[in-house]
Design a protein around this nucleic acid. Structure first.
Lengths: 220, 220
DNA sequence: GTCTATATCACGATAGAC
DNA sequence: GTCTATCGTGATATAGAC
């Protein structure tokens, strides 16, 4: 984080930090609606109420702004995943993350659009997006492995664990894409049902989502 | 299809039809790599070896070209789904579609990139992409309903059927996205395993993918 | 820290020759 | 059917005033 070095400086920088944040949030909206290539600095600047020059002042270039936006998304996203959720709980908490996403369509729209665009090796955000998936899948593998050690799930080989974790996150991305295209579908209910299919194959018994919601409320 | 009206005309149009096809295939590559907004007619024209003016001659506008590319994708895709596959067979055949996609990365890259971009209501391809998902999900719902009537799967309510079908296609999109970002993952094996989780919840017994492959080879 | 002004460039689309 | 030439627009990024 660039702002970390200036966060505790007094006085005149406070406006800059606030403005910086405004720019990032506008940029997330614009990149989400038109993609990275399709969104323009002009458009973002107009939303914020400044000129394009102010944007390059803060972020050097359009690419620099994109990276800042992606970092912002990761922060927002991690906030919805309490570090206390370990083992099987990690996956039972996924619908909660999805629920949070429904309240900020811009971020998920931005992420999926940029992720698809950045899948090309020559895209400026390719490295960032690749590392992001590595991290997310890696964390999932760690927690499902933990669940296996704890006896929360049936025995699985390491490669089976990777496949199952990839499937769970693939389901999440895919359902969210369908919801972007048709927002009338019940995103959380659909996701719960399909994720429940997968998790119940792991554990051998049905998932009681109501009980999960109660437990989640007790220990947030 | 526009070319349908000229496909069986003699002589001088043959070159035009062939060129038209070249343009569409190049456009699919370029739109896949840079998105619709990010890809340019100049770039496509250069790949084909003509000037941008030739492109607008054939397709009127950039948007017209995009529509032609999406139609082309649908044709290519439908070719991998034999109409003979009904009921549960429809879903058992999904990994075959995915396998075909691995052999033409450009098309799946184009589709996912444009689908994410076009999720915005103001995107020129929004209507097209929305109808496409409606059709795909609708077909899936029809076949899973048929499977229910045939007793191939456990009883399910109509709304449960919709959720399960959405989940199956979400899984497919999501896994393909992960494969675009990291092509070293075993796309088909991962998809088979996770789809198997879902289908076995429907039927109550494990999916024997080897048997599916044998049956598919017998009746293509 | 933000502005105005501008340099430089690429875009989609069109007109008209061949 | 494709070309050359060009128009008008809008993009990123920079320079220098305030």
């Amino acid at each position: 984080m660039v702002s970390a070095s200036t966060a505790n400086v007094r006085g005149p920088y406070k406006n800059g930090i606030k403005r910086r944040r405004e720019i990032i949030e506008s940029a997330a909206r614009v990149f989400g609606q038109f993609g990275y290539a399709g969104g323009s600095l002009r458009q973002i600047a107009q939303e914020v109420g400044v000129t394009p020059a102010a944007l390059t002042r803060h972020f050097d270039s359009k690419e620099g702004l994109l990276v800042a936006v992606l970092d912002y998304w990761d922060e927002e996203n991690d906030r919805t995943i309490p570090r206390s959720r370990q083992g099987l709980d990690r996956f039972l908490g996924m619908p909660t993350s999805v629920l949070h996403h429904t309240m900020d369509r811009g971020l998920i729209e931005m992420f999926l659009t940029v992720a698809a665009e950045a899948s090309n090796p020559r895209h400026p955000a390719n490295e960032h997006i690749r590392r992001r998936y590595e991290r997310v899948i890696g964390n999932g593998v760690r927690e499902l492995t933990r669940a296996r050690e704890l006896g929360q799930v049936h025995p699985m080989s390491d490669s089976e664990i990777v496949a199952e974790v990839r499937g769970a996150y693939a389901l999440m991305d895919g359902i969210q894409l369908q919801w972007l295209i048709d927002p009338t579908i019940d995103l959380v209910a659909t996701f719960k049902r399909c994720l429940g299919d997968i998790i119940s194959k792991w554990t051998g018994h049905e998932v009681d989502w109501d009980a999960v919601a109660r437990d989640g409320a007790e220990t947030p």
